[in-house]
Write a protein that binds this DNA or RNA. Structure first.
Length: 428
RNA sequence: GUCCCCAUCGUCUAGCCUGGCCUAGGACAUGAGCCUUUCGAGCUUAUGGCGCCGGUUCAAAUCCGGCUGGGGACGCCA
């Protein structure tokens, strides 16, 4: 049976690169109907933090992945020591200054990477390596080998930055008498500037992407497309069909630059394709987390507002400032919108207001019909009133379609906001 | 410095293994047009690429070599 693992170190948040490595492992496990193990590499007592661990687990779950087993290396120190001791007995390691050193036995190492094919190492950078530190904790390469072997990992799928570790680990497998797993080194994700994805580039942790308003499925879909493709020109794939199609052998060899533009496009696509109830639910939670909504907002009303905006959201966060006027009356006219108010149309707006006020039904169609009729009577182009009215009701120059927005706001609010505009003209 | 990985439009990729069907396909971004009350969305359309040099071959994006370029690793971090 296929058994793979993702081995994060809780010394930082789960970032884009780690998330994709996790995803590839998880997809492969699910594709093969195998097991996906989470191994927390918390051997560095100083730097490992509970909050990072929680964050990592939460991010993995949020992205839609689950694990069959979880192990903590911090609970396995005695196991590592036991195996280090065996190496000493075999004469392949020795103790010095309270630490245990492993002696590499020189030989050309060849690995048959599932993604890259044959990789040959003709030499090693060093002749020995600490495997148990002075403080009794194991070093990465050693605990990794012991655990992968003991846990029965069949495929080690990890980032290509681990390629140089592989020959060292293979030598340890041999010394320990363990069977080697298969290796697959997935390409790195580069920042748009070419180098490592980090500080300069805004968000790198999954949590930050979530907070920025990206949907989990967008992130997963996008990450998937970096270094893998269904080969039939499709860009949008559900997790379910990806599990069917995914094979680690098909992952590309070359590193890929992260592109926010494409992620944005995928995100807006997913937002647009969600049904309104689902999207409203997600946005409701999102806005709640951001403390954006006033208390006791009616869910039906919220849903209507979401419907208004859903086609123009790239990220959930776009909803925050753009839809604010639907929930609060205290908005101001934005500077860029005031230009539209340069021409004083107080009389015309007053006329329009009175006519709208008389409408028996305040629905989109009725409003639009009357609005256009009024403009005609005033001998104005429709847009001559559309723009100022939009500013009146939202404070903004741009927004969703005006007539549906008026319907959502309701007659009372619209009348009140038109009055406010008339006053604005009177005072300026 | 030593070792290793990679190389198709600006970006992500299909094609490469099993040379001819490739005057290299798709997506994002960008330009133009249509639609339109703004923005967006949608639709149509355009621009744009096999890093270079050799070799093998009737034929190379595809095979081989070199170069160049980019990336990674060299911690009692993981």
């Amino acid at each position: 049976m296929v058994r793979v693992r993702f081995a994060p170190s809780p010394t930082g948040y789960l970032h884009i690169g780690g998330a994709r490595t996790c995803l590839f492992n998880w997809l492969y496990a699910r594709h093969c109907k195998g097991e996906f193990i989470l191994r927390i590499e918390d051997t560095d007592r100083e730097r490992s933090k509970k909050e990072y661990l929680d964050e990592i687990l939460e991010s993995i779950s949020w992205l839609g992945m689950d694990w069959d087993k979880i192990f903590y290396q911090s609970q396995r120190f005695n196991i590592y020591k036991e195996y280090a001791q065996k190496l000493i007995t075999k004469g392949k390691a020795y103790q010095k200054d309270d630490a245990i050193f492993f002696k590499y036995e020189f030989q050309t190492i060849q690995i048959n990477d599932l993604i890259r094919g044959k990789i040959v190492f003709s030499q090693l950078p060093k002749e020995e390596e600490v495997i148990i530190k002075k403080d009794g904790s194991p070093t990465y390469n050693f605990s990794c080998v012991v655990d992968d072997a003991l846990m029965g990992i069949t495929h080690v799928i990890r980032g290509e930055d681990h390629i140089p570790n592989t020959p060292k680990q293979i030598l340890m497998y041999k010394a320990l008498g363990f069977k080697e797993p298969l290796f697959a080194h997935v390409p790195l994700i580069l920042s748009p500037e070419g180098g490592r994805l980090s500080k300069r580039f805004g968000a790198t942790s999954i949590r930050e992407f979530k907070e920025a308003g990206y949907l989990a499925e967008s992130l997963v879909n996008y990450l998937l497309l970096l270094s893998w493709s269904p080969k039939d020109n499709r860009e949008i794939l559900s997790i379910k069909e990806t599990i069917e199609l995914f094979d680690i052998k098909d992952v590309n060899k070359s590193a890929a630059e992260f592109s926010l533009e494409k992620l944005d496009w995928i995100n807006s696509f997913y937002i647009k394709s969600k049904n309104i109830d689902e999207l409203a639910k997600i946005l409701y939670q999102y806005t709640k987390d951001k403390n954006f909504l006033p208390t006791n907002i009616d869910l039906e009303y919220f849903k209507k507002v979401v419907f208004l905006f859903r086609e123009r959201l790239i990220k959930l966060s776009d909803f925050l400032d753009r839809a604010r006027f639907c929930f609060y009356d205290d908005y101001t006219y934005l500077e860029e919108a005031k230009e539209i108010l340069n021409k004083n149309l107080a009389g015309e707006i007053e006329f329009l207001k009175n006519r709208l006020n008389l409408l028996p039904n305040f629905d989109k169609e009725t409003i639009e019909k009357e609005f256009r009729e009024v403009c005609k009577e005033l001998n104005l182009e429709t847009k001559a009133l559309v723009h100022p009215v939009r500013v009146a009701i939202s404070g903004r120059r741009i927004g969703p379609g005006l007539f549906e927005t008026l319907e959502v706001l309701g007659k009372d609010k619209v009348i009140q906001r038109l009055d406010r505009l008339i006053k604005y003209w009177q005072n300026n």
